[in-house]
């Protein structure tokens, strides 16, 4: 179970993770904001659809790919939270169909 030992900070922001609002510290990594709120699944594996989660937390494994503000393939461990950011787990597998035209 993940836990924060962070010294008290006032600079808080609100983001949503899969639609649920959560509080985070400005500048915190998206991954830690997710994980501290119990959302450790970041993406589905491309073929099997199995749950995946961050492995290296330093940008070299690409397991923590999430969608941020609608943009897929964002590394949750490298991106920092900002006020109002919308994070969703990345559901793209090799059978996913597009639902909008991106217009």
């Amino acid at each position: 179970m993940f836990q924060s030992l962070r010294k008290p900070e006032r600079d808080r922001v609100t983001i949503t993770v899969n639609g649920h609002p959560i509080e985070a510290i400005a500048g915190q990594s998206v991954w830690s904001a997710m994980a501290l709120n119990g959302q450790t699944i970041t993406r589905r594996a491309a073929l099997s659809g199995e749950d995946r989660s961050a492995y290296c937390a330093m940008g070299v494994c690409f397991e923590c790919l999430v969608e941020i503000d609608g943009l897929p393939n964002q590394q949750a461990c490298l991106r920092r939270v900002t006020e109002g950011m919308a994070v969703t787990t990345q559901e793209i597998t090799e059978t996913t169909e597009a639902t909008n035209a991106g217009l």
Partner: peptide, 10 residues
Amino acid sequence: LMITARMPHF
């Protein structure tokens, strides 16, 4: 050539 990561089928 360039190739992308997986995208939803469109």
